[in-house]
Structures are given as C-alpha cells and as structure tokens.
Simulated scan of single mutants.
Amino acid sequence: MSPRPPPAQRPIGQATRGTTGTNRLRRNDRYLAGLPALRRTGDPLVVDLGFGASAVTALELWTRLARVRPDVEVIGVEIDPERVARAREQLVAVRDGTTSFAPEARVAFEVGGFEVPLPDGRRPILVRAMNVLRQYEEEQVTDAWALTSTRLQAAGTLVEGTCDEIGRVCSWIDVDEAGKPMRLTISLRLADLELPSIVAERLPKALIHRNVPGERVHAVLSALDTAWARAAPLGVFSPQQRWIAAVEALRASGVPVLGGRSRWRLGELSLPWAAVAPG
C-alpha cells in the first residue's frame, strides 16, 4: 500500500463479507464514547470504516456517541458502491421518521477504503474498523494501519478489531496517528462466560494466529483463565464481581492491566500493546 494514493485511484482494500447485525458493535460503540479524544476535539468527525451491508452500525454509532458529544458526525465508508447506495436509501427512511433512529442523525455514507476519502479533505478524530481486516493476511495489517492513520486528526485513533456475530465476544486494538498500536482491549459478556480465552477466536488479525505457547498474548489469556477460575466463588454475588477479582489478580501477578473497576465491570480489559505484541 502506498502512504497516500492520488485522488483518482480506486479505493484501497477488498470487499468483506459485509455481515451486519443490530447491536453487534454495541460494546465497541460504548468504548469509543469513552475515549477522551472525542470529547476534546474541535471537529468531532468519526468514520465507520467497512460498515457492511446495512447502515445500522453507523446509525447506532452516532446514536451512542451523540449522548456524550451531541455535535458528533459519523460517516460510513465502504468499498462496495452497492452497499453505500443501500445505506443512503436507508438513510432516507431515517430522515422521513419511519425508523427508530433520530431523523436529525448526523450520518452520511461514502465510497472508499483504507485511504478514507472524505468530503472537503476533512479528517476524523476516530476511525472504527471492526471485522474488516479479519479477512486479510496478517502481513497486510500494518500497511492498512499505516495508511488509515494518515487520515486522522492530531491525537486521533484508529480502533480496529473483531467480534462474534452477536457482539458478545469482542476485541480491538487502538492505533495512534503514526500507525503504531497502543493497546489491546477485550470486551466480553460475563453472564455464562466459561473461560475468558474464548476471545482467542475473535482476536484482531494481528494477534489471532499468535495465541500459541511462547507468545505474549497466549501467556496473558492463560493467566486470565487461571485468575477467572480461582475467582469462581465470587460468582455467587455476580459475574461482574468475579471478573473484577480476576482482573485484580491478573494485575497483582505483574500483568500491566490498564484502567479501573468502572471499565472492568463492563467485562472489559485493556493492556498496553507491549504486553501482547507478537514476539
């Protein structure tokens, strides 16, 4: 991938399967709403990159972000022109007030890929790319990060990751404006959770093939499984109490867990990239 394609060049990337589901990305939406950069920027523009076969994820993203930043704008970007046309048709229904979404939702849709072409050369503070790179080769990941990150505002973030079909098992990587990964977050539905390492099946492409002995991410997930098992007695109070105890034990063992209980009780766990980076 070239660092910055000429305007006339075709969108960079390949069409994904386009699987889209209502509320599938709710955990990621909630995480994005909590990022300080969104609250601080003078231009709260957010891109839903590779939004899929329906407008729903971009509309849900705007709905949730608008609760913390009422002037937020969301632009859905897709490489498939037919998906963009379909999303624009769905947006007409939103404007007509015949859907559950607010008619005034500040949402638009554009054709594009990792180069993130936006009207008037605007730059987003956040780019969300969920379930996009999963279908690429591992060696293509850093180029995609590097290219997309060139489109960010100063202090902007690319959030790239994967989730299951109903949004109960999720993980993503925060990438900075220089294209460098900063941290990994996993987000799990705690009710009926057997082992946290179920997230191994839904790790971002940069890590999904690294869950093997000798790799950092494997060591972290193994330690988290052990901590979760040892915290089982607290499950009688709530799965949240059990999770918090497991995460505290993980941190006490030397794993550099980020954040605090307000995020942990949501089933989230964030780690600096160095703690999980491929060896």
Rank of each mutant, 00 (worst) to 15 (best):
V116D: 05
V84Y: 01
E104Q: 07
I125N: 00
G97F: 10
F114S: 12
E104F: 02
R86A: 14
P103Y: 04
T99H: 04
L126S: 02
F109G: 03
D96H: 13
G97W: 01
V127E: 03
F114Q: 10
F101G: 11
E110H: 15
T98W: 05
T99C: 06
R88I: 05
V84N: 02
R106W: 05
E104W: 07
L118F: 10
P117F: 09
S100Y: 11
F109T: 08
V111S: 00
D120G: 09
G97D: 07
F109A: 11
G97L: 11
A93F: 12
D120W: 13
L118G: 04
A93R: 15
V127Y: 00
G113C: 11
F114P: 03
L91G: 01
T99E: 05
P119I: 06
E110L: 05
V94I: 04
L118Y: 08
V92S: 07
P124W: 05
L126E: 06
A108E: 09
T98K: 13
L91T: 10
L118D: 03
V84F: 01
S100F: 12
P124R: 02
V92E: 13
V92H: 06
R88E: 13
R123C: 02
A93K: 15
G112H: 03
P103T: 02
P124A: 01
V111N: 00
L91S: 01
R106A: 05
I125Y: 02
A105M: 11
V111F: 03
L118N: 06
P119M: 03
A105F: 05
T99A: 03
P103S: 01
R86G: 09
T98M: 04
D96L: 13
P117M: 05
E89A: 15
V94M: 04
A93H: 15
G113A: 08
L126W: 06
T99G: 00
R88C: 07
V107F: 08
R122D: 07
A105H: 08
I125T: 02
I125K: 00
D120K: 14
I125F: 00
E115D: 13
F114L: 14
Q90K: 08
L91E: 00
E110F: 11
D120F: 12
D120Q: 15
F109H: 11
E89K: 15
L118H: 11
S100C: 07
V127S: 01
A102L: 13
E110V: 14
D96T: 06
A93C: 08
V116I: 15
R106G: 02
P117W: 07
E104L: 01
E89T: 15
R106V: 04
R88K: 13
R123F: 10
A102S: 10
E115V: 12
F101N: 07
V84M: 00
V107M: 08
P119S: 09
T99Y: 09
I125W: 00
G113M: 06
V116P: 06
V92R: 14
P103E: 02
R86E: 13
E89C: 08
Q90Y: 11
S100V: 15
E89V: 15
R95K: 15
